[in-house]
Every structure is written in structure tokens, then in C-alpha cells.
Computed example of a mutant assay.
Amino acid sequence: MNIEELRSYCLTKKGATESFPFGEQTLVFKVGDKIFLLTGLDSHPMSFNAKCDPEEAINLREQYPNSVFPGYHMNKKHWNTVVLNREITLDQAKRMIDHSYELIFNSLPLKIRDNI
């Protein structure tokens, strides 16, 4: 997965928007004005931060010790940094993105979810 594939995939999510609130090197994806994914445009190999259920976050870190880490500059209980270094398949990365989006979407007030 490269940056354009990541961007395209995130923008397929209902109500997803992209912005650069932290500077021109950090691409942020939001739903309902809440972040569900961040990625650095200058990271090599490419990586992203995604929200995760705390228990699942621990499981993923144990399952992929070379690719999934506590979220860099994020709440380490609820966020993972995922390094796309070929240990994780494209489908696995998409599942992590989906999970993050769903956690954020489901946390939005009903009125906002209905408008999305």
C-alpha cells in the first residue's frame, strides 16, 4: 500500500474527509470532525496511526511485533502505529483502518451519524 492507495481507501469511508491540521507532512482523515487515521507523508516505510480497541491493540502488537506499536504521539492504550513493512498484508491493513473508522463513527452522536 502506498500513500495514494491509503488515501483512496480512507476516502471511500462514508463521511470521511482529509486535512493537514498538524502541518503539511501529516495527512489526517476524519469522520464527523474526529480523527480516525493519521499518516506522515515523509515516513519510510510508510506507516499510519489508527484507533483500536485496547484489547485488540495488545493482540495486534503481539501478533505483529515488527509492524504494530503503541501509537506514536497518541494515547498508547487506544491507538496503534502500523508500519507497512510487508509483515502485514493489504487486507490486514484495511481491516485495521476499517476498525478505526468504525470505532470513531460509532462514537459520534446519533444526530451526526444520521447526517453522514
Rank of each mutant, 00 (worst) to 15 (best):
L41H: 07
C10L: 10
L11A: 07
F22L: 15
S43T: 14
D42W: 10
F69E: 06
H73I: 08
D53R: 01
S107V: 13
A57Q: 02
S8N: 14
G23Y: 07
E56I: 12
H73S: 05
S8G: 15
H99W: 15
F20V: 05
R95D: 07
N85A: 07
S100Q: 04
L108M: 09
F105Q: 03
P109K: 14
D53T: 00
M1K: 00
P54V: 08
A16N: 10
N80P: 08
N115K: 11
M46C: 08
D114T: 02
T26G: 07
S8L: 13
V83E: 09
D42R: 15
M96N: 05
I58L: 12
N49Q: 15
G23R: 05
K30G: 03
N106D: 14
I58R: 01
L60S: 00
N80L: 12
K13H: 10
T39W: 12
L37T: 07
L84D: 08
I97L: 13
N115G: 02
L90Q: 13
E18G: 09
D53C: 04
E62Y: 03
H99D: 08
F22V: 08
A16L: 10
M96W: 11
P65H: 04
E87M: 12
T89M: 13
Q92A: 11
L41M: 13
S67N: 03
S47Q: 13
G32S: 03
S107T: 09
D98M: 00
P21G: 01
L6N: 03
N85T: 06
N49C: 15
L103T: 06
G23T: 04
G71Q: 08
A93Q: 05
E55Q: 06
D114W: 00
F48Q: 06
S100L: 14
N49V: 15
V28Q: 01
Y64K: 00
H78P: 01
Y64P: 00
I104Q: 03
F20W: 04
P54E: 07
V82A: 09
S43G: 00
K77R: 12
L27E: 04
G23S: 04
I88E: 05
P65W: 12
I116T: 01
H78F: 09
V31T: 11
Q25R: 14
T39F: 09
N75F: 13
R86H: 14
S19F: 02
A93C: 12
W79P: 02
F48W: 14
G23C: 09
I58Q: 03
N75L: 12
H78C: 05
R95Y: 01
L90A: 12
I88V: 11
I3F: 05
K13Y: 08
F48I: 08
N49L: 15
N66A: 04
L38M: 15
P21W: 10
K51S: 10
L11M: 15
T81R: 15
T17K: 14
V68G: 01
H44I: 12
V68P: 03
I58P: 00
E55V: 06
C52T: 13
E102T: 09
P45F: 10
E4R: 02
N2S: 10
M46G: 11
A50M: 11
L11G: 07
E55N: 02
H78V: 05
P65R: 03
T89K: 09
W79M: 13
E5F: 03
H78I: 09
H99P: 01
K94E: 07
P65C: 06
S8C: 11
F29V: 01
V82L: 05
K77S: 14
D91G: 06
E5Y: 03
L110M: 08
I97Q: 06
L110V: 10
